[in-house]
Design a protein around this nucleic acid. Structure first.
Length: 803
RNA sequence: GCCCGAGUGGCGGAACUGGUAUACGCGCACGACUUAAAAUCGUGUCUCGCAAGGGAUGUGGGUUCGAUUCCCACCUCGGGCACCA
């Protein structure tokens, strides 16, 4: 027999598949569809390491399996290629970013093709291709027309290193997610998308999605819905009121002061009445100069200044409360003002202690024995309970009081933590925002017929640092006529963030060459939503929220048919270096898939990555362990020697049906590791026997083929007369009658401990088993001098004797 | 601080709905083949014990004839949110 030469086999079949186009997206009308999608990569300069393809292997297995089960498969791939890394590479090497991007894409594509994926490359997309980003810009224009894209002048997050504004989602602990610089607040004009309009739907529709619970939970946290009340505190001797947001209306009687954010407009309005204006101004300026991280990390010490001369009236009892500004109150959340109840809120408690303000208890824990009340001199009691010191509400419970007080003194209000999406970047390598600024007409959308607005060539891609994009220096490009009044006007020079192109790419694959629409609605109806989406957890609160937002918007303007893009989501766990650290050049622990493929074969790499452990687990790479997968394939190869026209021995036939069942179920549930272990068990059984029937071998090859497409195709081809590829053959069905065993091993337990195993015909009567069990020496000796209290029987499994 | 998820051999891990814990693979040890090595094949491999038997699924308790699985408390690790009223 020939040796197993993976190099020859893999190259040969990859060529054949490409030529015969067996992976081309099929659209036979009578078949069901399955859209299997990978999170498309950002083609960086360093190429792939073995961790990257893990998710791609899983979708490859899954889509091959589904194809063999009679589905039309859409399984495409593309490139998310706008963004800072390419731009920085270009600045350093003085070349246009698109040249760098094309070079990197070529490398990636070569690396991927060696692994033998079944992508339909005819649908390849690239977010930096004008034919693609024409539609990204088009979507922006639709949002603009609906008032969902607007200009804002609020201070935003500014990264001093990347020299661009950033969205909230781009920060990590107050630092830039990319470069870890401390983020500054910078007041500047920016484009913002009104994602907050969709907050409620983004939250509610999560319930319907078949996604990992942890991702849904992350999104819920990020959206941060909370139900509370708005309550107005009139400012004494003025026409102003301070409106506060609280989730604890039941503690209203315990309010002893009011705090408003330093940025709150009311502060200026009250200027005339404030006797210590200089101190107040000083505090406001100091706050402005602090970064977010400084504001929250100074030991969380609560600072603030009283607005002397101002009093606010508590609507429930007429108490006249002092008013402070303090930066522990956030301007952008709720109303930017709070009523402070130091007895029942930790933060208010700290502030009250520091400024010597009264602490008034109004809630008593419900059960004093269980919930021993803390000493209010040391700690706030933040739980709910029974009211005291609250006039006619005394004795009532928190829950009912919340409702009653809100009804009487305020209004219900829902707030969210999520904030509108800061959408402009002051960098070169992104989609230009298709807006023209005219002195007379204001912000005017570029007419749709003029899309795409392409990027001009510039001498320097480097950011200007002034808050203007490098595009602003290209006067030829910037100066245009207003589409409205034909007067002189200027182009918007900010570009879109990295996340724009990936927010709708799943739709473009469906109809990647359409010049008239972003997607044909009928095609969308057939292929959407994505049935299986696979990628890393790091996208939980960015890409996966943005894409849902855009998708819902496109649904609302009736451009598409469904309101959620990704029906089912799976996360792959990271592959770490063999030292347990993240694979990185820095640690020198990077394994290149090219090397693994050359030395051990693509099939070995694929089987190993699926066998390593549960798909979502983070596991260290081990070349030593991988050799086990190579051995497995070599043994499979040698199985050909045992192939015969004789019928397989009975135990092989039986085990084959069991294995088909197991592998089928495991692929459906993404339990690839146990699917492979079941095939290993089958292989071990064949090795114990003299022969295996050729047809049975073919069945086995079929269930292995999604994992190891090359070796199975080769063996299929030599053992069958057909020219048809194994990958478009039918998935085998198992016969349930062949799975049942003739004999069962029944564990005989005494008080829960196994004392013997009884081999007996499956389906035997309990009586018979009981009799036989009680005759066993190993059982008898435990029963001497004991009474049997009870005997339990679990069919074909256990006989439990209780003494 | 709040909210999720997870802790099983030397290692990756398996165990259906509460029913024989440690499948499968790696590693290791011994043996066969070989002048030798590699490769391959075979046997063994949680732990204490000569054995009968006992003990082990992060720790401590509980429910049950029976718990890796269910309940309570705690510890450790991973992730999300975090001065969000």
């Amino acid at each position: 027999m020939k040796k197993y030469e993976h190099n020859k086999i893999e190259k040969k079949w990859q060529k054949v598949w490409q030529k015969s186009k067996i992976y081309k997206t099929d659209i036979k009308k009578d078949k069901p569809k399955c859209y299997v999608l990978d999170m498309f990569p950002y083609p960086s300069g360093s190429g792939l390491h073995v961790g990257h393809p893990k998710g791609y292997i899983a979708t490859d297995v899954y889509s091959r399996y589904k194809r063999m089960n009679g589905f039309n498969i859409l399984h495409p791939m593309g490139w998310d290629a706008f963004g800072l890394p390419a731009e920085e590479y270009a600045i350093k090497n003085k070349m246009h970013p698109s040249i760098a991007v094309n070079k990197n894409i070529k490398t990636y594509k070569e690396q991927l093709s060696k692994i033998g994926f079944n992508y339909d490359w005819e649908r390849e997309i690239n977010t930096t291709d004008p034919k693609y980003f024409k539609w990204t810009q088009w979507i922006f224009l639709q949002m603009f027309k609906k008032g969902l894209a607007y200009e804002s002048f609020e201070p935003i997050n500014w990264c001093p290193t990347c020299q661009t504004g950033l969205a909230n989602e781009d920060l990590e602990d107050g630092k830039c997610e990319r470069c870890s610089s401390v983020i500054e607040k910078k007041p500047m004009r920016q484009w913002v998308l009104k994602i907050t309009d969709y907050a409620d739907r983004l939250l509610k529709d999560l319930d319907e999605l078949n996604w990992p619970e942890s991702i849904k939970e992350s999104q819920r946290n990020w959206i941060g819905r909370s139900e509370g009340s708005l309550i107005k505190f009139p400012v004494l001797n003025s026409q102003f009121t301070i409106e506060v947001f609280t989730t604890r209306a039941d503690t209203l009687f315990g309010a002893t002061y009011v705090v408003i954010a330093p940025e709150h407009p009311l502060v200026l309005s009250l200027k005339e009445k404030i006797s210590n204006w200089d101190d107040v101004m000083k505090y406001i300026t100091a706050t402005k100069n602090k970064s977010e991280i400084e504001r929250t990390s100074e030991g969380k010490e609560k600072t603030g200044v009283q607005l002397k001369g101002i009093k606010a009236k508590n609507p429930v009892n007429g108490d006249e409360l002092p008013v402070f500004i303090g930066d522990y109150v956030l301007a952008h959340y709720g109303t930017g003002a709070i009523m402070a109840v130091p007895a029942h809120d930790d933060r208010d408690f700290d502030f009250a202690k520091k400024h010597n303000l009264p602490i008034k208890q109004v809630i008593e824990p419900e059960n004093l024995v269980v919930n021993k009340r803390g000493n209010l001199l040391e700690k706030a009691f933040t739980g709910e309970g029974v009211l005291i010191n609250s006039q006619n509400f005394d004795g009532m419970r928190s829950k009912e009081v919340k409702l009653a007080i809100t009804e009487k003194f305020g209004n219900k209000k829902v707030t969210y933590k999520i904030r509108d999406w800061v959408f402009s970047r002051q960098r070169y390598w992104g989609e230009p925002i298709p807006i023209i600024h005219c002195e007379k007409c204001g912000a005017v959308p570029v007419p749709e017929k003029d899309l795409p607005v392409k990027l001009p060539n510039v001498k320097s891609y480097a950011p200007t640092g002034t808050g203007e994009s490098p595009l602003s220096a290209i006067t030829k490009w910037v100066n245009v006529k207003c589409p409205n009044c034909k007067g002189p006007a200027k182009r918007e020079t900010n570009t879109m963030p990295q996340w724009a192109g990936s927010s709708w790419y799943h739709l473009r694959y469906i109809d990647s060459k359409n010049q008239k629409e972003l997607v044909d609605k009928n095609k969308d109806k057939y292929w959407s939503p994505v049935d299986m989406y696979v990628g890393g957890t790091e996208h939980a609160t960015r890409h996966l929220i943005y894409a849902r937002f855009w998708h819902k918007f496109l649904f609302d303007i009736e451009a598409i048919n469904y309101s959620e893009p990704y029906k089912q989501l799976k996360n792959q766990g990271l592959i770490l270096g063999s030292d347990g650290r993240k694979m990185s050049k820095r640690w020198g622990n990077v394994i290149n898939p090219d090397d693994v493929v050359a030395q051990y074969g693509a099939d070995t790499l694929r089987v190993y990555e699926m066998f390593m452990g549960p798909f979502e687990n983070m596991i260290s790479w081990s070349t030593e362990s991988m050799i086990g997968s190579r051995r497995f394939l070599e043994k499979i190869w040698r199985m050909q020697e045992k192939a015969s026209t004789k019928q397989s021995p009975e135990q092989i036939e039986k085990l084959l049906h069991k294995t088909v069942k197991k592998v089928t179920e495991d692929i459906e549930s993404f339990s690839f590791n146990t699917a492979i272990s079941a095939m290993m068990i089958f292989l071990n059984e064949v090795e114990k026997n003299t022969h295996i029937n050729k047809k049975d071998l073919s069945i086995f090859l079929k269930i292995l083929s999604p994992f190891a497409p090359h070796i199975t195709e080769e063996m299929w081809n030599t053992n069958n007369k057909t020219k048809k590829s194994i990958h478009i053959s039918d998935w085998p069905k198992y016969d349930p009658s062949k799975i049942t065993e003739e004999f069962s091993n029944i564990a005989i337990q005494i008080n829960g401990k196994v004392r013997d195993i009884l081999k007996i015909a499956t389906g035997s009567k309990e009586e018979e088993i009981r009799e036989k069990a009680l005759e066993l020496e190993s059982v008898k000796k435990w029963l001497v001098g004991k009474d049997i209290k009870k005997i339990l029987y679990i069919k074909d499994k256990i006989l439990s004797i209780v003494i």
